[in-house]
């Protein structure tokens, strides 16, 4: 009986969206507005933007956490994690602040994670054909990225650099991101492997506004990963 009551209360899962944002004043408003309909709380981590990102997000009802120094996307996500742990969230969503993703993917993704009882869900652009990816990116940059991931992380994700993820409370407890910049995507996968977390991939749509990272970004990720191996 008591168990039933507890599970009833537990049905009210707290679902927090973490949106890392750096100078996204043009897009953050629509991201926050559309997200609020799908999650319990929108947390915008403002990574020391020089524009109006923080004010706009705050005005639209998002919880704004402000970095005093620009630290990078990985650090912003981890700040959001820290907040979600304090709030004892049941699920957290990683969602980019630049309108790349479609909020319509959120509810089906969460349901998929819940029904399959996995710890973490990774969005993927390759499971269906909805994303119109530039040729160079699809056939050159991403395969190279996948090779780097095999070297450093070794869980075989089809779309390793996708920023759409949902973590349950267990994954949230285990995954502490120490890679401040873009290498966090690979780091998350190696933590999944290290702590034996279960995962699934789920098709999401990605809109391409402009080119993501250039080649130099890829090299920086490799450097961060190598240096990270020596630092505790």
């Amino acid at each position: 009986m008591t168990n039933n009551i507890i599970s009833d209360i537990k049905n009210e899962n707290m679902f927090i969206a973490i949106v890392p944002a750096y100078n996204e004043e043009k897009r953050i408003a629509s991201v926050v507005k559309s997200l609020r309909a799908h999650v319990d709380e929108v947390v915008v981590v403002d990574d020391c933007s020089t524009d109006d990102t923080a004010r706009i997000a705050g005005k639209l009802g998002a919880t704004v956490l402000s970095h005093g120094v620009n630290l990078g996307q990985g650090a912003s996500l981890e700040t959001g994690h820290e907040y979600a742990r304090k709030k004892q969230a049941d699920y957290v969503l990683h969602f980019d602040g630049d309108e790349q993703f479609d909020v319509a993917d959120i509810v089906p993704a969460l349901e998929k994670l819940q029904t399959t009882h996995k710890d973490i869900l990774f969005g993927s652009r390759f499971l269906d054909n909805r994303s119109n990816m530039p040729f160079f990116k699809r056939h050159i940059l991403l395969p190279v990225g996948r090779m780097v991931n095999i070297l450093f992380a070794s869980i075989p994700l089809r779309d390793a650099q996708n920023g759409f993820r949902i973590l349950n409370a267990h994954a949230l407890d285990m995954i502490h991101i120490s890679q401040n910049r873009m290498a966090h995507a690979t780091e998350i996968m190696s933590l999944v492997k290290k702590y034996d977390l279960t995962y699934i991939e789920f098709p999401v749509k990605v809109y391409y506004h402009e080119y993501g990272q250039a080649m130099s970004g890829g090299f920086r990720i490799m450097r961060d990963l190598v240096v990270g191996k020596f630092v505790k």
């Binding site: 970095h67 005093g68 120094v69 630290l71 650090a75 907040y83 304090k86 401040n180 240096v227 990270g228």
Partner: peptide
Amino acid sequence: MNIKIEGLKRDLTKVVREKSL
């Protein structure tokens, strides 16, 4: 030195994060 700078970066991250929370 590289290792040391990386360590400093992590300390900085910790301080900035605590302050933002």
